[in-house]
């Protein structure tokens, strides 16, 4: 792979990651959020493939394939199925005004770039220079967890956070070994499967899936 192509691919995939993350914060439709997650999963798989091939990892296509299947196909499908089952397609309540949400997201992206510089130091490696995207993903995922009430969008935020971590680790270490990626991905898959079932159950028991109203267990 030529250096130019590599940089192009890197820029495309990380750009897609950042774009989908910001778009997540904007908008209330659950189906759209899940759709964005599919794009994000695909971009992440592409990023891992790019970095892995560049670093000469033999298992890179395998890892990328695994990520694509789990993050862009299986998880969104499970979440979409849960959402369809309970008939919730829009976020019901707003915790903050949309403008505040977007300003917060912008501020966090800036923060990610601001703190990543000193941490990474001077570097010319294009992959390392893209690390702030991963940090933004983590912070935006957290932001999503904070500002959203519905269990499904919470899950979306959690997955975004996980995507961010995966992106950082892939960018800094030049591709992760298959066993580590396998462990981390399957963990998250388990969480999604369990929560997918739990959401359906919540709707059946409580009539809503707003986690901020779940106060029964607070003692």
């Amino acid at each position: 792979m030529s250096s130019e192509l590599y940089q192009q691919l890197l820029a495309t995939t990380t750009g897609l990651l950042l774009l989908t993350a910001v778009l997540q914060v904007w908008g209330r439709s659950t189906v759209r959020a899940i759709g964005l997650l599919v794009i994000q999963g695909t971009a992440l798989a592409g990023l891992v493939l790019t970095v892995g091939v560049q670093a000469g990892e033999a298992a890179a296509p395998l890892v990328a394939g695994l990520l694509f299947v789990v993050k862009a196909l299986v998880m969104p499908w499970v979440m979409l199925r849960s959402a369809r089952l309970i008939g919730v397609t829009r976020e019901r309540s707003a915790r903050l005004r949309p403008a505040v949400e977007l300003i917060g997201a912008a501020g966090l992206t800036l923060l990610a770039y601001a703190v990543s510089g000193p941490i990474l130091g001077d570097t010319t490696d294009p992959a390392t220079r893209a690390v702030p995207v991963g940090v933004s993903l983590v912070l935006l995922g957290f932001w999503q967890l904070l500002i959203r009430g519905s269990a499904i969008t919470q899950l979306v935020g959690f997955l975004m956070l996980d995507n961010g971590i995966a992106a950082i680790s892939s960018l800094t270490s030049g591709g992760l070994p298959l066993v580590v990626e396998l462990g981390a991905t399957l963990d998250v898959l388990l969480v999604v499967l369990i929560l997918g079932a739990l959401v359906v159950r919540m709707q059946a028991e409580e009539g809503h899936i707003d986690i901020s109203e779940l106060r029964e267990l607070h003692d």
């Binding site: 957290f142 932001w143 779940l214 267990l217 607070h218 003692d219």
Partner: peptide, 15 residues
Amino acid sequence: GSIHRYVGFSFAALV
């Protein structure tokens, strides 16, 4: 008991 508050704690700590 508010999950949002707990997430907020982790978030603040991370930042």
